[in-house]
């Protein structure tokens, strides 16, 4: 039984890492604009599908992954430039609805390009399982974990150590004041969309060898990533990471101990419970401001 629990834990942390990356993307855009970008899941799908297509076209894996990520970043920037920026000044809700529209559009484009079939990427370093403490770990899981740790550390350093990162946060805290100190809010918004798209694409490429990918693959991943972000306290990047891992582990435990049919239900039930008892998320900023 302990081995089995350990196995669930490993599975949970792997899938949770993905939720964390997607959640991080949500947090970035939310920080820059108070907007929840519901096309975040589509970035994941685009990263995976483009990488698969490029690989099938004969490119080596690493090159395909890099190009797929850059292309998805490009899509993120285009989305910002042609769907979000023209609506500058519109309410947050309007902008969120625009992102939902963009998500549907991107899904449609993917459907036209790649059809309804499921596609798979070959694992980065084979699929011979590794035994760790009684649990069977796929090499791809280690890739997921390793890359996630590196990306999270980079994003954390970006916000904690760089002026650019703080400028991005400043836009979230007080947009008028950010403009008044000379931060170009438009540039920050583009940066947020570009980074989110890149994180999403990488998540998609990492997970593609484990779960199959299709034009619709972004929908559920997007929802889970969004859940991770709100469980962690939306706008708190590291909270989104913790929320993602927590969600993944709970899901894996639920699937293993109860029934895999309830996997998604357990995750969303957890989100509801968190929102019920701790509406600002588990790691959300408690409002502490003197006026």
């Amino acid at each position: 039984m302990p081995e089995q629990l350990f196995q669930f834990l490993v599975t949970g942390i792997t899938i949770g890492s993905l939720y964390a990356l997607v959640g991080l993307g949500f947090a970035l855009i939310y920080n820059a604009s108070d907007v929840v970008n519901f096309a975040q899941g589509e970035f994941v799908m685009l990263g995976a599908m483009t990488a698969i297509a490029l690989l099938n076209a004969g490119l080596p894996l690493l090159v395909a992954a890099v190009i797929a990520t850059l292309l998805t970043v490009g899509v993120g920037l285009l989305l910002e430039r042609f769907a979000i920026e023209p609506a500058a000044g519109a309410s947050v809700v309007t902008t969120i609805i625009i992102t939902i529209g963009a998500a549907i559009f991107l899904r449609g484009v993917a459907l036209l390009l790649w059809g309804k079939d499921f596609h798979s990427l070959k694992p980065f370093s084979g699929d011979a399982p590794i035994q760790i403490g009684g649990a069977t770990v796929l090499p791809q899981s280690l890739w997921v974990l390793g890359v996630t740790v590196v990306l999270v550390a980079l994003v954390r350093a970006f916000f904690n150590r760089t002026l650019l990162g703080k400028a991005l946060l400043a836009c979230a805290f007080n947009r008028t004041a950010a403009q008044a100190v000379g931060i170009n809010v438009k540039v920050m918004l583009r940066l947020a969309y570009g980074l989110s798209a890149g994180l999403g694409a990488l998540a998609g490429i990492l997970i593609a060898p484990i779960t199959f990918s299709s034009y619709e693959a972004g929908v559920m991943l997007g929802l889970k990533g969004f859940s991770a972000a709100i469980v962690g306290g939306i706008g708190n990047p590291m909270g989104a990471v913790a929320g993602g891992v927590l969600l993944g582990v709970l899901e894996a435990l639920g699937a293993g101990l109860v029934s895999s049919g309830y996997k998604d239900a357990i995750a969303f039930l957890f989100v509801l419970m968190v929102l019920f008892f701790e509406p600002t998320g588990l790691f959300g900023h408690k409002a502490s401001e003197r006026v």
Partner: peptide
């Protein structure tokens, strides 16, 4: 701002969740 007109906003409007030092650093953005 880059040209040299800097504004102190009504009601302070500091970046509340950032440190004093970070606020100043952002002032010098």
């Amino acid at each position: 701002v880059a040209a040299g007109i800097c504004q102190v906003l009504e009601g302070r409007q500091v970046f509340a969740p950032l440190t004093v030092e970070d606020n100043l650093r952002l002032g010098g953005y």
